[in-house]
């Protein structure tokens, strides 16, 4: 085989990468959930609700109100609820795109089967990520409903938190699946938790970023969850700023990078 046909194989590969059939992968996910693990899926909804009750309502009664940068005072529960919403989007997306994908990749051999059909790796990647998003979206909608009932949505822009959360989830799912494609053992998978837990605790979820010294603030601002928290908080409290656009851009970049790597890796793993 000459170098030129090699180039053809790669560049003529739009169809080789994507057959426009990602929705079938989503449908497969829904069917699998219906027939096996819907209880696990439902339980995911309660996690942020429990946090909200314990921290916002319980702990919050000792803390009182929080002052936003604009000077507005809001209840502690209203302050952390959007953070928890972003966290639940992150957790749902990461769980689906890491543990579930890892299992399907190494034990279920699901992707072997999918890629021996006319589907391409981008169909698989996009389909799995969209399924994770769908799940994240359901959680987000449920949690926003709880927030509404508890009176924690302070502005009309709160309903925009649903697409915002989907964007956040999309970013995490893309990167999560890309990283998972490099993982070989269960020990590797534990590293994901080591990254997620501190990010959850320290990304201005429970208190403003200003408590940190400047270098730590930069570090936190470089991590994705802070952007998610700030974006969602801006929408539910109505305190939008030019930074919101930046947060959106951060996640768009994250999605692009994640999808590129995932597709490349799936191709290398299953079609080489």
């Amino acid at each position: 085989m000459s170098a030129s046909t090699d180039v053809d194989a790669r560049s003529g590969g739009a169809r080789a990468l994507y057959s426009g059939n990602a929705r079938v992968v989503v449908a497969r996910g829904l069917l699998a959930t219906k027939s096996t693990n819907w209880v696990v899926v439902v339980s995911g909804f309660f996690e942020p609700v429990f946090y909200l009750l314990a921290m916002g309502w319980g702990l919050g009664s000792f803390i009182g109100d929080v002052t936003l940068p604009s000077g507005t005072e809001i209840s502690y529960a209203a302050y952390i609820a959007p953070g928890l919403l972003a966290v639940s989007a992150m957790n749902g997306a990461v769980y689906d795109s890491t543990w579930n994908v890892f299992f399907k990749m190494h034990f279920g051999k699901l992707y072997d089967a999918m890629l021996s059909t006319s589907m391409g790796p981008l169909d698989v990647a996009l389909g799995e990520i969209l399924y994770a998003l769908l799940r994240g979206g359901v959680y987000a909608f449920g949690f926003l409903t709880v927030m509404q009932v508890l009176g924690l949505n302070l502005a009309w822009t709160a309903f925009l938190a649903v697409p915002a959360v989907l964007l956040v989830a999309f970013g995490f799912a893309s990167i999560g699946m890309a990283i998972t494609s490099y993982m070989k053992t269960f020990q590797h998978m534990d590293w994901i938790n080591i990254v997620l837990l501190p990010m959850f605790l320290f990304s201005a979820t429970f208190y403003p970023l200003t408590v940190y010294p400047t270098p730590i603030q930069w570090l936190i601002q470089a991590l994705p969850l802070w952007h998610g928290t700030e974006l969602v908080r801006g929408l539910t409290t109505g305190e939008l700023s030019s930074a919101s656009g930046l947060h959106v851009a951060y996640f768009v970049a994250m999605i692009a990078i994640g999808l590129t790597f995932t597709t490349k890796r799936l191709r290398a793993l299953f079609l080489d």
Partner: peptide
């Protein structure tokens, strides 16, 4: 190399190890 999906769409593949979807009936 250049027509992977077109070829795969006309093949039936029975791999050495079963890779049935255990989450589906």
């Amino acid at each position: 190399d250049t027509h992977g999906p077109a070829i795969r769409s006309q093949l039936g593949v029975v791999p050495q190890e079963d890779n049935l979807d255990t989450e589906l009936r």
